[in-house]
Design a binder for these strands. Structure first.
Length: 271
DNA sequence: CTATGGACCTGAATGC
DNA sequence: TGCATTCAGGTCCATA
């Protein structure tokens, strides 16, 4: 679930519920991707002042230090009032004065890492090297085109790498390339400025639309039970191998790039 | 420096 | 029905 839109929707939901909350207790389950990096007891009493996002990382800014949360492949954050029957995949729980923040993450690729100061390891290492935020002023067509020129790999892989722009995951990489009518295997550095501009616009459009749709899961999110949103993704190509292209009717194809599935229309998307 | 493949972990879906 | 294989929304790290 967690591509940038889901993370952003989560961020907004958490912001309305947890700003100003004081941490009362922390509970850890099985190990996540990295250790928390601080004794739980140390964080008790601190307050959540703001919740930001960098790429797919959530940054809970405390009155001292930052809690960095990543949802990995299968992570899901909820806030509930009740202690609730703990599932065996709830690996992080933070009881606050305004509810219990709970990370449910079966695959445990997610992480919760504390940093007393973002200029510090390991947080610095995690956040440095990330590409520009798609919704920042830095994500601008000419700069995007210039950045793509440095890469010889397939445009799909470059989008996924997050080195040029963050937040475009496996689903939206395919979707954005379809919207821009660009073949996923095209070398990134070979895109003309016209096509690069089209991709730039497509990325924004696809992410914005997904966030707007994710808004429907926001209500569920704020729900006391924190049920899963099930907001549907009406994908044009993702997961639609063999089904007709919504534009030309030809069958959508799947190929593997960098061990990830890519979906595309061989007719609408060209080099 | 860029590019590629493996690793991490669990559950659901598919195949025999 | 049971068991093995494949695949899944991410990204760090070692290697070439």
């Amino acid at each position: 679930m967690p591509e940038l839109p889901e993370v952003e929707v989560t961020r907004r939901g958490l912001t309305t519920l947890l700003i100003g909350a004081q941490i009362l207790q922390l509970k850890l389950g099985k190990p996540l991707r990295w250790p928390l990096g601080v004794a739980c007891q140390t964080l008790v009493g601190r307050r959540i002042q703001a919740i930001d996002r960098r790429g797919k990382y959530l940054l809970l800014r405390l009155d001292e230090g930052v809690l960095l949360i990543h949802l990995g492949m299968s992570g899901h954050l909820t806030v509930t009032a009740e202690p609730a029957a703990g599932s065996r995949h709830d690996h992080f729980e933070m009881q606050t004065s305004q509810g219990i923040l709970r990370l449910h993450d079966p695959r445990r690729f997610g992480a919760v890492v504390y940093s007393s100061d973002l200029q510090h390891d390991p947080a610095l290492k995690l956040l440095s090297g990330l590409g520009v935020e798609p919704f920042s002023a830095d994500f601008e067509p000419a700069a995007f085109h210039a950045a793509l020129k440095k890469h010889r790999a397939a445009i799909k892989s470059v989008l996924l790498s997050g080195k040029v722009v963050v937040g475009v995951g496996n689903i939206y990489a395919s979707e954005a390339l379809f919207a821009a009518r660009i073949h996923p295997a095209t070398p990134a550095g070979r895109l003309s400025s016209v096509r690069s501009n089209r991709l730039h616009a497509a990325i924004l459009q696809v992410l914005e639309q997904a966030i707007a749709q994710g808004g429907s899961s926001l209500r569920d999110f704020a729900d006391a039970l924190g049920q899963d949103g099930h907001f549907q993704l009406h994908a044009s190509v993702y997961g639609r191998a063999g089904q007709p292209c919504k534009h030309c009717g030809r069958p959508i194809r799947m190929m593997v790039q960098g061990q990830r599935s890519t979906y595309y229309c061989p007719r609408c998307q060209r080099w």
